[in-house]
Nucleic acid binder design. Structure first.
Ligand SMILES: [Mn+2]
Ligand SMILES: [Mn+2]
Ligand SMILES: [Zn+2]
Ligand SMILES: [Zn+2]
Lengths: 143, 143
DNA sequence: ATCATTATTGTAATGATTACAATATAGGTT
DNA sequence: AACCTATATTGTAATCATTACAATAATGAT
């Protein structure tokens, strides 16, 4: 998916010093595009890097966001999640299994009224409901 | 805007016991539609109700949400905000002054791809940027 | 008035995130 | 290569919103 060299190149390209921890976090994000939390990243990388600090994860993620390497999203408000897919897309959260899905949409085609004079910098689309998997399980159980 | 009797009627209508605290919270929400936080409501009502507990505010808001009296929204992830405007609308948060504005849009006209088989229960639209007021101040300062 | 149900209160706990200071590392300069 | 400064990492303590929980109070039906 993304090897160490590719990660280093990407970081240097953006002006971020490619430390070992940062490389690993960036690689993890590219290998786990399901919107992981800081804690999930920390837990996963701790196995390989026993000295890893939670603070480093937070610092790294903040750096990545400010340098435009990742986007952060807070769907529910309990945990911030990180997204390495930079292409504009919407998010669907299944309230049964908690999975966050990406979906495509033409963000700029949304017609609004009441935003005259507003400078729009970001458009965030969040849908909630039940995913096909959970929907199917529910139907089966109901029989 | 909404007097005690109106609030009581609304609560009874929805099957929520109209305690004094609940009446006051509901009234506050109707008089402050700028998406207040639990803390803001608590601080404001504490003046009048010195024995008021923060827990009551949280309980009350949870009750209101579950009975469909208000909606909650978590735009940034730091604080949950409460919205008594039940009509579907989008939110714009100014990252300069922090104000959260409502705007109108046809939510159902959004075309998506990749959500086949998903049961959509809620559509949340959040824009961020700079509001006209802050935009104007910035321009003036720049002269 | 009695009694069971429900609401309120206060305090303690939780959990994600931030603040901060000490230590370690990286990369440029001599 | 050794040196030095800027930057990154680490560990711990603090913060802040929210929740858990148990005691007390109020409500509404009988
Ligand atoms: Mn995504
Ligand atoms: Mn609103
Ligand atoms: Zn699901
Ligand atoms: Zn503003």
């Amino acid at each position: 998916m993304m090897n160490s060299d590719q990660a280093a190149t990407l970081l240097k390209q953006k002006g971020v010093r490619p430390s070992y921890q940062r490389l690993r976090v960036l690689q993890y994000l590219h290998e786990h595009i399901g919107h992981p939390t800081a804690e999930e990243i920390f837990t996963a990388l701790s196995v390989d890097i026993p000295t890893l600090s939670r603070t480093t994860i937070y610092n790294t993620l903040h750096t990545f966001v400010s340098y435009g390497l990742v986007n952060c999203l807070t769907l529910d408000g309990v945990e911030t999640r990180y997204d390495v897919v930079l292409q504009k897309h919407g998010h669907f959260k299944c309230h049964r299994c908690g999975t966050i899905f990406n979906f495509m949409m033409d963000v700029d085609r949304i017609e609004t009224s009441g935003l005259e004079g507003f400078v729009i910098e970001n458009k965030n689309i969040i849908f909630t409901g039940i995913c096909p998997d959970c929907s199917f399980k529910k139907t089966k159980k109901g029989e």
